[in-house]
Amino acid sequence: MRDMNFMDKLLDGVAVEWKALGEVCRIETGKLNANAAVDDGAYMFFTTAKETSRINKYRWDTEALLIAGNANVGEVKHYIGKFDAYQRTYVLTNFINIVNVRFLFFLLSNSLKKYLEERTNSAAMTYIVLSTLENFLIPIPCPENPEKSLAIQAEIVRILDTFTELTTELTTELTTRKKQYNYYRDKLLSFDDGEVEWKTLGEVGDVKMCKRILKNETQSEGDVPFYKIGTFGKQADAFISREIYESYKNRYSFPKKGDVLISASGTIGRAVIYDGEPAYFQDSNIVWLDNDESIVTNKYLWHFYKVAKWFVSGGGTIDRLYNDNIRKTKIPVPYPNDPKQSLAEQTRIVAILDKFDALTNSISEGLPREIALRQKQYEYYRDLLLSFPKPEEVAA
């Protein structure tokens, strides 16, 4: 793949004929009441390009491309076998013999959504107009030589499938590792009687929050990011001045580097370790436990928060985790009568769980990083391999 001469030989100088999608296949739609879903049906029923159920009867038994026509408009699925489809799903079959169906799948997956968005007046596409879909242009390389054309298409498919399969394997591996992490986390945070004392969080620390920031104290740009519940753990969209930050930080409660911040509304219990960089946090919605690390360490607390049974108060417009509810939450403290052994055991547990967490969640190492790199690699070669020269009348 490093030898770009290979790409040049494959694509350079190749004549291309552009055909409308309606010329290279039959385009149909499913029916409103095609079939009733059943639990043990033998055949697939597509409600969108991705979502399926089971049925006892089928309409098609062939190789097909399915395009979502309402929900997830423009999503494409390649399927071979017996199936039926809902009325808003477009079904492509009966492909002409100069088109590789998998090649067409990659073309549609890469360009169809943008094509549809450019041809709709709506801010968000709600459905596909059949004539618009039929007029989507498909490049056929080397049309005067069908055998060579199909060979070129097959080689493009082989390369892109290689990247797709690798990403799928890595994603499957990530799912397995997350299950392992959850298993060991649950196992390591469970203790035999006598080895542990269940203390309330209120016994190991007190709940703290930042001083309230008023709306007129924030701005869209500034020196210090201000995290609200909607941007907690993400990218801040509001800022406060350095002057306010320094004043409030020195006069009121403020987390220390390493303290574990938690969301107290919305997604309850989401935890972020404070890195010590200048930042400010929305009062009552983002709080932390000012814990005694001679009893419970911050990293042990962070892993525990992922399995904590919070006392959530409902009844309002959103669920909330009030300070008293946090204080009542119980945490297992190993070897409570031997502080040295307790901290050693917490350190051992954290070391094991940190390895799993880095492998399954870190964007700078582990599987998420590998998946992101492979996706970028796939997108690079996809764009390279599917960028065919357009004649002026088509590009206009």
Rank of each mutant, 00 (worst) to 15 (best):
I213Y: 10
L214P: 07
N216H: 09
Q219Y: 11
Q219V: 13
E221R: 15
E221T: 15
E221F: 13
G222S: 07
D223M: 11
V224I: 14
P225C: 01
P225G: 00
F226G: 03
Y227A: 03
Y227T: 02
K228C: 08
G230K: 05
G230I: 01
F232V: 08
G233V: 02
G233A: 00
K234E: 06
K234R: 10
F239S: 05
I240D: 05
I244G: 10
I244H: 14
E246G: 07
E246K: 14
E246M: 13
S247T: 13
Y248D: 05
K249Y: 06
Y252H: 15
F254Y: 15
F254N: 04
P255S: 00
K257M: 03
K257V: 07
K257D: 07
G258K: 10
G258P: 05
D259S: 04
V260L: 03
L261T: 00
I262E: 03
A264K: 07
G266D: 02
T267L: 07
T267H: 07
G269P: 04
G269S: 03
A271P: 01
A271R: 10
V272R: 04
Y274L: 09
Y274S: 10
D275S: 10
D275V: 10
G276F: 04
G276Q: 06
E277A: 08
A279F: 02
F281M: 03
Q282W: 03
Q282V: 04
D283S: 12
S284H: 14
N285G: 15
V287E: 13
V287I: 12
W288H: 00
W288F: 05
W288Q: 01
D290N: 12
D290E: 15
D290H: 08
D290L: 09
N291E: 08
D292P: 04
I295S: 12
I295K: 10
V296R: 06
T297A: 08
N298P: 00
Y300Q: 05
L301Y: 14
L301P: 05
L301M: 12
W302I: 08
W302T: 11
H303C: 00
H303P: 00
F304K: 04
Y305F: 11
V307L: 11
V307K: 13
K309L: 11
K309S: 15
K309A: 14
W310A: 10
F311N: 13
V312F: 10
S313D: 14
S313F: 07
G314Y: 11
G314F: 08
G315A: 02
I318R: 14
I318E: 15
D319N: 15
Y322T: 12
N325A: 15
I326E: 02
R327W: 02
R327M: 12
K328V: 08
K328W: 06
T329W: 09
T329R: 06
I331C: 09
P332M: 01
P332E: 07
Y335A: 12
Y335R: 09
P336Q: 01
P336K: 01
P336Y: 00
P336C: 00
N337Q: 09
N337S: 11
P339H: 00
P339W: 01
